[in-house]
Design a protein around this nucleic acid. Sequence first.
DNA 1: AATTCATTTAGATATATATCTAATTATATC
DNA 2: GATATAATTAGATATATATCTAAATGAATT
Lengths: 199, 199
Amino acid sequence: MQLDKIVNYHKALSDPTRLRILLLLSKGDEIHGQALAERLNLSQPTVTHHAAKLREASMIMERRDKNTVYFKMNPEFIKAGSNASLNFIFSKGTEEMEQQSPESSLKESVLRNFFAKDGRLRQIPAQYKKKLIALQYIVEKLEPGTVYSEKSINEFIQQFHEDFATIRREFIMHQFMYRENDKYELNPPEMWTHWENVK
Amino acid sequence: MQLDKIVNYHKALSDPTRLRILLLLSKGDEIHGQALAERLNLSQPTVTHHAAKLREASMIMERRDKNTVYFKMNPEFIKAGSNASLNFIFSKGTEEMEQQSPESSLKESVLRNFFAKDGRLRQIPAQYKKKLIALQYIVEKLEPGTVYSEKSINEFIQQFHEDFATIRREFIMHQFMYRENDKYELNPPEMWTHWENVK
DNA sequence: AATTCATTTAGATATATATCTAATTATATC
DNA sequence: GATATAATTAGATATATATCTAAATGAATT
C-alpha cells in the first residue's frame, strides 16, 4: 500500500540523530561512518543503524572504498518524498477531476503535434507543461522495476529523439527516473514532478 | 531548539492512522470524534490520542458544539511544516540565535503572567513593552518564509486569543508581518519595531 | 438532581526503536 | 596466513507509543 511509503518517509525524518546526519551531509560532501560517529558523539553501530534507515528511505547513498563506507545525501529523493507526502494528504482526487478534461485535451494536443506518425518526437517542447507531457509519454514506455544501464537508456531514447543526453537529463531532473552508479531506474509515478497531472 | 519542531512534525505524520485521519479531513469538511472512530474502526480513546498529537503539531483544529468535538484540517500548517523541514535539512533556515538580554526577566514575567498554562493569552497587555513581548512570543510560532492567507492567520491567532482582528492588526502595525493582497508573511526580526530588544 | 451522550483520562499491554557493548564479518595490507 | 581497520550483526536495555477497556469528566436535557 502506498500509505506505508509515506509513513516510512516521515519515520526516517522523525529522529533528531538522522536529521543531524542529513544536516552534515547537506553540504554535498561525502562523510564516512567513523567520521559521522565522532561528529555526532555516537558509537559506530548506532551510525550503521541510522544509515540503514536512511538508505531504506533512499535519502542517502553509500559507496565503499577499501573498507570504508562513504555516505552521500540524495537530495532529490528527500524533496520528492515531501512532495509525495503532500500529494497523498491532499489527495489529488477531487481537484484533478475538474482539471482532467482540459488536461487531457492538452495531452492529446501535445501528442498529436509534437510526435510524428512514426512515434518520434519532432522537437522537445519549450513550454514546461508540454515538455512534461512529452517526457512522460516516452518514459511510460520503460519497464517499471527494471534497472537500465546508461547505454541502454541512451539507445531507448534515441528511438524517439536524437538528443538523448538532454532527455536523459530531464528524466532525472523531473524525477521520472533515478540514477545510481550509472544505473537508471524508473521512479513510481507518485514521485514524478507533475504527479498531480498524471492521473 | 529548532530541531525538535521538525522532529515533531514528522512524528505527527509517521503513523498510518494519523495519515488516514488527515486524508478524511482533507476534503475540508468537519468530522466529529465518534464518526472518525467508526470510519477508522478504532475506539474513541484512540482517536483522542491521535487528535492530541495532530493538534500539538497544529495540523488540525477543534471546535466544540454541545458535547461533540468537531475536527478540521489546518492545511497551511501542514504545508508550512513540510517547507520548514526541507529548509532545515538543506540549511536554508534563517540563522536565528535566540539570545536573551538583561530584560529577559521582564520577558519571563510577561510570559508567566499573561499566558495561561495551556498557552493561551489571558488578555492583551495594555503596557506597550509588555504588549510587544506578548506579540513577539506569538509571532515567533509562525514559520519564516511561509505565505499565509488571512484565514489561516486568523485561525492561527485564535489558538492564542479570540480577538484575532486586533492582534492581526498589531502584527502589521509593529511590522512583525507584512501584508500584500491579503497574503501575510513574516518579516525578518530586523524589521520588528522593538528589534533592539529582540536580540 | 438524575440521566444521557461524547469525550477525555487512567492504566495495562504489546510493539517499536535508539542506544550501547561485545562478537563477527569484510577488505586490504604485511 | 597473520594482522589491522572499518563496518556490521547480535543481544541487551531503556524509552516511546499505539491500542484497548474501564472509569471519570463535561455539557446538555429532563
